[in-house]
């Protein structure tokens, strides 16, 4: 019996793909046929224009034409597009994922940007001119010379209470936020506290309620009156928004049920820090809970400082 024709082709293709993968290891697959920072100039110009609009109306979600990238939507493409349209040859980029410099996501984004721009990468918060982050703000205070780009899965804070985009846009237009407040009230009635963990809604510039992306509550106060420009990019939802430096950003709260940061029972098990956001880890062998800094660079810096003291 002979192999049917279509199976032959399949086998042939598999060999071809294998060979191709061997010949083209990751990191060499994007050729030279793209402009600096991968996106074409018109796209970058559009994103910059939308970013300017976002800066001009703090907290307002500006729609933009989210482009296809060699990364699937929902994996930080909003942040990447902002980064790519802002980055220049002299920039120094830091990418973190939940505070970690070395997670797969952060490393891949760094590799990609490095390949398409050739700019320098760093883990040092203070050295970076541009920081792209997923769900954390670096612990070290950022300056007015730096920009923080945050990746956003769901840019609409009112999605908690209203499913229709048409309605939420009208609600933003009218500053009709009573249903958001009602959501918090209901939380208190049911659980005697506000149970929102991350994505804590904030009021920006006394005008728009904004989703600060899924940063922990710990990071929310860092947005208020900061020296740094914060840009938020949602690639899948096609929205850009911003908090310009020195903008009033306040978490929603009641007089008798205030906003609270997370509280940790002990400090970081590696560096001893108590004044930073910690990850809880359960040790498998003992079942013991230990805490470590979520910001890995901050932890390293603390440890080095501790060594210096000794």
């Amino acid at each position: 019996m002979t192999t049917p024709a279509h199976m032959k082709t399949k086998a042939l293709n598999r060999i071809k793909l294998d060979t191709w993968l061997k010949e083209n290891p990751p990191g060499t697959r994007i050729g030279d046929g793209h402009s600096f920072a991968f996106l074409d100039e018109t796209t970058k110009r559009e994103i910059r224009r939308k970013t300017l609009k976002a800066v001009a109306i703090p907290g307002y979600q500006v729609p933009f034409g989210s482009r296809e990238l060699p990364i699937a939507r929902g994996w930080g493409t909003g942040g990447i597009q902002l980064t790519l349209s802002l980055i220049g040859p002299d920039d120094i980029l830091k990418v973190i994922d939940q505070g970690c410099d070395d997670s797969v996501n952060a490393v891949n984004i760094k590799k990609f940007v490095e390949q398409v721009t050739g700019v320098a990468m760093t883990n040092e918060t203070a050295r970076a001119t541009l920081i792209q982050t997923r769900h954390r703000i670096p612990e070290q205070k950022m300056t007015d010379k730096q920009i923080l780009v945050l990746q956003v899965p769901t840019p609409e804070p009112l999605r908690f209470v209203e499913a229709s985009e048409e309605v939420t846009r009208r609600m933003h237009g009218d500053a009709d936020y009573s249903s958001m407040w009602l959501y918090l009230y209901e939380d208190i009635v049911k659980y005697n506290e506000i149970t929102i963990g991350s994505r804590y809604p904030v009021l920006v510039n006394n005008r728009h309620i904004m989703d600060p992306s899924p940063i922990p509550r710990w990071d929310v106060p860092m947005l208020n009156m900061a020296d740094t420009l914060f840009l938020f990019g949602a690639g899948r939802e096609k929205r850009i928004y911003a908090i310009p430096p020195h903008t009033d950003v306040r978490p929603l709260e009641f007089e008798d049920y205030g906003f609270r940061r997370e509280v940790f029972p002990e400090g970081c098990s590696l560096c001893g820090s108590t004044n930073c956001f910690l990850d809880e880890i359960v040790e498998e062998s003992s079942g013991k809970r230990v805490y470590t800094c979520s910001d890995t660079y901050h932890c390293k810096r603390q440890r080095n400082a501790n060594k210096g003291e000794e």
């Binding site: 009573s178 407040w181 009602l182 009230y185 009635v189 709260e253 009641f254 007089e255 049920y257």
Partner: peptide
């Protein structure tokens, strides 16, 4: 939503901030 929440919504709209 709770019945009390239904009443509170109008107060919230008016800027009441003490539960």
């Amino acid at each position: 939503f709770s019945s009390s929440g239904n009443v509170a919504e109008r107060l919230l709209m008016d800027g009441w901030n003490n539960v």
